Amino acid sequence: MDEPAFVIHGVGNRDRVGFTATVTALEVTTGLTLRPVYWGDLGADDTFVDLSLPLRGGAQAELRDGGVLEDAAGTAAVLTGLMHCTQPAGWGVDLPPAVREGVHDVLGEDADQGLRTSTGDPELEQLVLDTLAELWPTTDWLSRTDDPVLLRETGRAITDALAPEPDDPYAGLRGPGQDQNKQRGVIRRRLADLDRIAGAAMQAVAGRANHALRTRLGPATTRFLGDVLVYQRHREAIQARVWDQIAAVDPLLGTGPEHRVRVAAHSLGGVIAVDMATAQQPLWISSLVTFGSQSAYFHLCDPRGGQLAPYSLNTLVSLPPSLGRWTNLWQPLDVLAFAASRVFHHEDGTPPIDIALPHTASAGMWTHSAYWDMPQVAATIADALRPTP
């Protein structure tokens, strides 16, 4: 009878029964004999993590219309947009090109004037650009962003104040012989108004998004970061759990080159497996499949020790013979997944095999837990961990 391959879960798993069921389903799919290695009861305690989260206007982030910001993926998208507003005020010396484009949209010779009869106003266009270039560093919010859509619309909105409809209170500010001081005053006031509105909107959205992410993703984040911290402090206890569950099948398994073990591991489970296979007293692994894992990232940040040398420029880290063939899977939207082939190489000089998995719409934006249901993962495990004759 073939010895089973062992499956080690990653961060945030607190459901032994559920994990066992997942491995059982994977066993059916792959046709392999698999044994779950559960260590989640040794992970971080997130029972009272909500006590560390600041409250903002109550337990939930309510929108002005009474709705609630529920969609974490949408919230993440909002924060991605807000990343365009991370510079100190006045950081741009020159007026951004997108603002210039917005001004030209309204006043350029080739501008689409709609029902207007004007073919452009280059003199006024230059005055607007000069005035904005002078005032731009004084803005508190607009000068922080490099978002091209926001900047272009800002240029258009400011210039539209000088190109009004006939009944607009600013009518008469275009054309030859106009008072340039009045024109500059309009530009100054409109820029200040838009800057104030942009600031209020950015702060309101950022505050709600921050609170929503904390309250909805806080426990998951705690389990990831907490499990990493717990593993760093209690590595021996967690690795001992792995050894115990392997030894329960056969005490000789993994103890030497003649008794190698096969392993599939998710997330931090992959880090655990690589750490054990490269320790001074290693777990001898013939074939390893990791998915959504971080060994290379952690080793670059803080060398793992054992038999692994620190990474140096243009010199890959040599893996000991105790770690056999290593296949590493990663998903493009999984921010917790890292490649291995640019950091490590096997004893024979070949790198681990990195395989990028396609993103599926059903996985949504949070893909770190999606690997278990992906046919490509099961197929790779079945191929890589198939017992050799």
Results as ranks from 00 to 15, higher is better:
E3W: 14
F6Y: 03
F6C: 02
H9N: 06
R16W: 10
T29N: 03
T29Y: 00
G43L: 00
S52D: 14
D71E: 07
T75E: 05
A76H: 01
G120H: 01
W141T: 13
D146T: 08
R152S: 15
R156E: 12
D160N: 15
A161Y: 00
P169I: 06
G172Q: 04
R174I: 01
P176C: 05
N181L: 12
Q183D: 00
R190Q: 09
D193F: 07
R196C: 12
A201Y: 13
M202W: 11
A209S: 14
G218C: 03
L225R: 06
L229G: 15
R235L: 02
I238D: 02
R241Q: 06
R241E: 11
A247N: 10
P257R: 15
R260I: 09
R262W: 05
A264D: 10
S267M: 05
S267A: 09
L268S: 07
G269D: 02
P282H: 12
W284P: 09
G292H: 09
Y297N: 15
C301L: 15
P303A: 03
Y311R: 00
P320V: 03
W326F: 05
L329I: 07
A339S: 15
H345P: 06
G349I: 04
A356P: 11
T367G: 01
M374R: 12
T388Q: 13
